[in-house]
Design a protein around this nucleic acid. Sequence first.
RNA 1: GCGAAUGUGGUGGAACGGCAUACACAACGGACUUAAAAUCCGUCGGGGAAACCUUGGGGGUUCAAAUCCCCCCAUUCGCACCA
Length: 802
Amino acid sequence: MTKYDFKAIEGKWQSKWEEEKAFEAKNDYTMPKFYALIEFPYPSGNGLHVGHPRSNTAIDIIARKRRMEGYNVLYPIGYDAFGLPTENYAIKTGIHPEIVTERNISRFRAQLKRLGFSFDWSREISTTDPEYYKWTQWIFLKLFEKGLAYKAEIPINFCTSCKVGLANEEVVDGVCERCGGEVVRKVKSQWMLKITEYAQRLIDDLDKVDFIEKVKTQQRNWIGRSEGAEVDFKLDGFDKTLRIYTTRPDTMFGATYMVVSPEHPVIKELEDKIENIEEVKDYQQKAARKSDFERSELAKDKTGVPLKGINAINPATGKAIPVWTSDYVLMGYGTGAIMAVPAHDTRDYEFAKTFDLPIIEVIKGGDVEKEAYTDSKNGELVNSGFLNGLTPKDAIPKMIDFLEENKIGTRKVNFKLRDWVFSRQRYWGEPIPLVHCEKCGWVPVPYEELPLKLPMISDFVPSDDGSSPLARATDWVNTTCPHCGGPAHRETDTMPNWAGSSWYFLRYTDPHNDNELASKEALDYWLPVDWYNGGMEHTTLHLLYSRFWHKFLYDIGVVSTPEPYMRRTSHGMVLGENGEKMSKSRGNVINPDDLVDEIGADAFRMYEMFMGAFDQPIPWSTKGARGCYKFLDRVWRLQEMICDEQGIRDDMKFLVHSTIKKVGEDFERMKFNTAIAAMMSFVNEVYQKGSITKDELTVLLKLLSPVSPHIAEEMNENIGNTQPLYNAKWPEYDESALVEDNVEIGIQVNGKVKTRIMIKNGLDKAEIEKLVIEHDDVKPFIEGKTVRKVIVVKNIVNIVVA
RNA sequence: GCGAAUGUGGUGGAACGGCAUACACAACGGACUUAAAAUCCGUCGGGGAAACCUUGGGGGUUCAAAUCCCCCCAUUCGCACCA
């Protein structure tokens, strides 16, 4: 009996799988299909993180099980390789990003291959490959064609350190998500994508898919739909109205002042009429200088300035109310102006208290002396004319009807979601395939000229004025207009790295197609993705963006499903051994290579799954990982315990079949830790027994093979099975074998467990009751007491005595 | 501030409302060994003679609660002036 030599075994089977093309998806579109997907990694210079294999192994287990169940499985891999870290590295070292990317990908590929994932390597892609980004550009041009890509002068989030514009989603706590640099607002001309046009559908279609609830909730909150009304307030003494948005039209009788955002155009329009215009302008400037971080940090203290001389008429009461400006009202949401109802809105309340503005209670139910009463369902309207006596819930529609009848307002739905800032002033991204011509404006690069390749340059440092490094590649920038032939220049901004990842799962279905992003047949067969696992951090970024692109492609007939992913699950983060997030600065990063050297890929994979509940964050434990090695070594030595008997022995039937059931069901529920525990129990019992048959062992190896495939294949071969496990049939359990002859039942007296007894299985309740009451072990607990009731449930009997 | 999740031995964690602490890690004891490692076999929530106590704390529903309901406390993660 040889030692468990995981190095030799793993190398041997990895080569074998490759030679036999064991995991290549078949282009046989008549077979039942299963598309398993993980988020393709960003090939960073640090190599694989122990978090990657958690998602990869989980879906690998599912993919391998599906193959054994007869599905044509697509489990692809690729690299999301455009992006800032590579570019920053290039700036620091002078090595071209293309070379860095190539190097990083090689390292990732080697690390992934070492772990024995059943990826279809023949479909490997990289977003930086011109043959790939040709189609990223193609989709962009389609969006442009349909009016969903537009250029706008907007205040953007600008990272002062990366010198790059960021999407709202990339600003975390007021600082840059990637580098932690300060983010300020800067007005720039940017390409935007109209994701807001899909806002309603992105919410509605969540009902069609099986995503974990957390993801759905987060997406809904991010899209932030609200129903309300837009109302025009007349400005006293002017032929002019100020439009506001409110979700609480029922409180309109309590609107005692109005507030406009500092960026609101009305200030400019009424410049001459505002008596304290200098003070107002000063406030505007201060607000503009504030970074987002400062704006939110200072949120506690309300600031503002009245627009002296400007009053509005409350359309409900007919009374004149003052107009203020304050940065607690945002230009980007609603109309940039609000009616302030201090009695029933927390922010308005604070503002009114700060500036001593009147507070009128219009809903009874709280104590407006102390705080705003904001319940939009309960309470009773007062001081509100025709709404008096109603609850807010009933008053809202009634007020909207009133506004619509009198043509001063309309029903209106608003979303928090903003359009997607799509331009980056960076080098290492897909060039935006547009040309600007003085005469013709923005003109698309003709489809037949795609891919528009990134020019080779050697200086990637972004300019201080925030323009892209590509602007300096004048040979490339200066071109002719595809429309009129006149002089023109290319767009020098590039796409964000969310572009390539928004559709990569489509390319996998037909990755070498030169004529289309993928053939219709391939797309129709493989889509939607059956099971997609990835990180929660991508919920409002990648996951939302790719749903948007997919819906657009659905609308133009490229794909046939309205949603890209049927099922979405999420893994918990792997923390350092000290329970903190793994990071270089904390010094608690675990390098998978070292551990794989020590315990092998099979044990490593197993530990990744065994360490804890899949969806919870779990601290790493290298000792725990070594425990999995110990278990596999124990499995290995089962070969010495094979006996001459055949088949599954009677006294093993229950164990074998209940383990098949448990492992299979737990895999499907992503309860990998308890599935592995069941296999450990199985092995413990075999050790107790001292022997195992070849057939019993074969079952165990099949169950083990999705988690630790190399050792399972090797042992399977050793014991004389000729069919490799990767295309063996997944074992089925026999229901009748799950019924034991005798069962242990727990005896409770008044709900507390007192003892346990063995009884024959299959008795009815009355028989069990009789048996229990008369049982010698039970008697002491009920002697001299009156039995009030006996409850028999499954394997518990509860005797209620007095 | 709002929302969500989590809280069980020394540690990671199990447990359709039905025998709490499965399975591991660590620790301890024994066997094997000249010795160690590895391996195998045991012990392992508290308390103890037994009774009994124990799932962050307090209440409740139930024959029965880690699990369901209410109120607190703590930790983590989202969102954060969205009218």
